[in-house]
């Protein structure tokens, strides 16, 4: 599953649905990203995507992850629109035979999403608004997988 949603979601419910009915999957790893308040500096996070293109680009990297880590399955749910502090913004789940592949695939997918996936992120706060670009650390994290 690769999906964008404007609605808040429940990571626990997603995990339950993702793990259900598996008998050969020995490991499921998940990551949930949550919008930070930054001590009051951020009141709303606004995420923009390019509908169609964004899902297709994530799909390409998901295919890479499936092949590279031998995944049984994966799920990526990403919020778009306006997101309040404390709300989940992204959920990634990976299923594999053993834990190492599941952990690493989850890490790989998040490093990609932070620096290469077609999203644009703006912070709104009491001091105005600003667009967020990937940090040097985000790029370095992504380059670990080259």
């Amino acid at each position: 599953m690769i999906k964008l949603t404007e609605a808040p979601f429940d990571p626990g419910a997603l995990l339950s649905a993702f793990t259900r009915g598996r008998s050969e999957t020995g490991a499921v790893a998940t990551f949930t990203g949550i919008a930070r308040a930054e001590q009051g500096a951020t009141t709303v996070l606004e995420l923009e995507a390019y509908p169609g293109f964004t899902e297709a680009e994530i799909g390409r990297i998901a295919d890479q992850a499936r092949e590279r880590f031998g995944l049984h399955d994966l799920a990526i749910l990403h919020r778009v629109g306006r997101i309040g502090p404390g709300e989940p913004i992204v959920f990634v789940a990976t299923a594999a035979g053993h834990r190492r592949a599941a952990f690493e695939a989850c890490d790989f997918l998040m490093d990609y999403l932070k620096s290469k996936a077609p999203f644009w992120k703006k912070e709104h706060g009491p001091d105005g608004e600003r667009w967020i670009e990937p940090t040097a650390q985000d790029h370095a994290d992504r380059n670990r997988w080259n």
Binding site: G33, L47, Y50, F53, H78, I89, V90, M110, L113, K114, S115, K116, A117, P118, F119, W120, K121, I132, E133, P134, D138
Partner: peptide
């Protein structure tokens, strides 16, 4: 035609 500035998700 779409112009796509540097991207950042998550």
């Amino acid at each position: 035609v779409a112009f796509l500035p540097p991207m950042s998700g998550g």
